[in-house]
């Protein structure tokens, strides 16, 4: 479904992603693990197309020059330089890190903005499904999103991605800043989403413990370089991964 080939991203002279290749098949749940500054978010931005937009803005502002090489194929078509809005229409939806929501709008308004391109019946159906998934949000649906807790905002951010009707759902650090209990809940939800909506999900995370057991395959990157890849159980058995991410 998605194929990233030899992707290289430079921020000015710093190399954020070095010759990174990966492929994702339909209905897979793929994890990308790595510490801070490994290039996880850069990869997500490149796949979702935000990098194309950031690049233009930086260029006009005279800031950092971003150079990107390699290619990204989605459903057999090259999308390396496609606009982010076009990619959303084709089904690539990113849920960005630090759960960005429209703080001044209520939960319902947030979800309506996220589903603006979808037909009304679709939104209604997804909302019913989503609010059943997150009963907390149902209770809070008229509250301003900015006043909600981090976990609730994260749930809302995920739901906003779902409303946009993704085929390939990108989750950038969904567990960041959440308590272990909520982390588990978010991961359970991700699994349910995959089975209910038959999504392909790509998830980046620093916390390997809740992620590794559930993923089909995983890639471990450090400093922009792919270090280990394999299926979930394989990674859990890998001594390096064990030492660095599971602390044993």
């Amino acid at each position: 479904m998605l194929e990233v080939r030899n992707l290289m991203v430079f921020f000015e002279n710093a190399l954020a992603l070095n010759d990174f290749s990966m492929e994702v098949a339909k209905r897979e749940l793929i994890g990308i693990l790595g510490p801070n500054s490994a290039g996880k978010t850069t990869l997500m931005n490149a796949i979702s197309g935000l990098l194309v937009d950031i690049r233009i803005k930086e260029m006009r502002r005279g800031g950092e020059r971003i150079s990107m090489y390699g290619s990204i194929d989605y459903e057999g078509k090259d999308i390396t330089w496609t606009d982010p809005s076009e990619r959303v229409k084709r089904g690539i939806v990113l849920c960005r890190e630090r759960h960005p929501v429209f703080k001044e709008s209520s939960v319902m308004e947030n979800l309506k903005i996220a589903g603006y391109l979808m037909p009304r019946s679709h939104i209604k159906k997804t909302l019913e499904y989503g609010l059943e998934l997150f009963p907390n949000l149902k209770r809070l649906r008229h509250k301003k999103a900015g006043f909600m807790s981090g976990g609730e905002q994260q749930m809302l951010a995920i739901l906003m991605g779902i409303v946009a009707n993704p085929k390939l759902f990108l989750l950038d650090e969904p567990l960041l800043g959440l308590s272990p209990m909520i982390q588990k809940m978010v991961m359970d939800t991700v699994l349910r989403l995959r089975s209910d909506l038959s999504l392909t999900i790509l998830i980046t995370e620093q916390f390997a413990r809740p992620v590794l057991p559930v993923i089909d395959r995983g890639y471990v990157i450090e400093n922009g370089i792919l270090t280990v890849k394999g299926t979930g159980p394989e990674l859990m058995e890998n001594p390096e991964v064990k030492a660095a991410y599971l602390g044993s």
């Binding site: 430079f10 000015e12 002279n13 020059r65 150079s67 090489y69």
Partner: peptide
């Protein structure tokens, strides 16, 4: 060969 413009102080 792919080329990239480099900036150095």
């Amino acid at each position: 060969p792919q080329l990239r413009k480099e900036r150095i102080d």
